[in-house]
Amino acid sequence: MTVKEMAHKLGYKIINNTDPVAEKLDAKVTGVYACDLLSHAMAKVNEGDVWITVHTNLNVIAVASLTNCACVMIPENIDIESQSIERANDKGVVLLSSSKSAAHICLEILSALKDMK
């Protein structure tokens, strides 16, 4: 399941899809990780994970880029800082948004991944 397929299937909003982010929409989703402590996330987020965090500052984009996660998911329709969207475009980091809670999103993604097996 790619990021784009997941977003369509589960109704997540794709915040940015300009180049070079567009090609990252084809990245494979292999897991999900929810954490708001950036150092902890940096240590634990794996390549291919959807990283869920309520933070929307520039450091989130740096951590997403370092971990090479599949995408960043911002839950509960939290507003995303415009400078972070610009930085995400520069760094090729896909940002997604949903009205649902982090727990609900984890459940949805894990269920979708299980269904694919």
Partner: peptide, 15 residues
């Protein structure tokens, strides 16, 4: 408030 300050920085560097 920005998500830092969990006291994991130096141990993350060491690891």
């Amino acid at each position: 408030e920005m998500g830092f300050g969990a006291g994991m920085g130096l141990s993350n560097i060491k690891k």
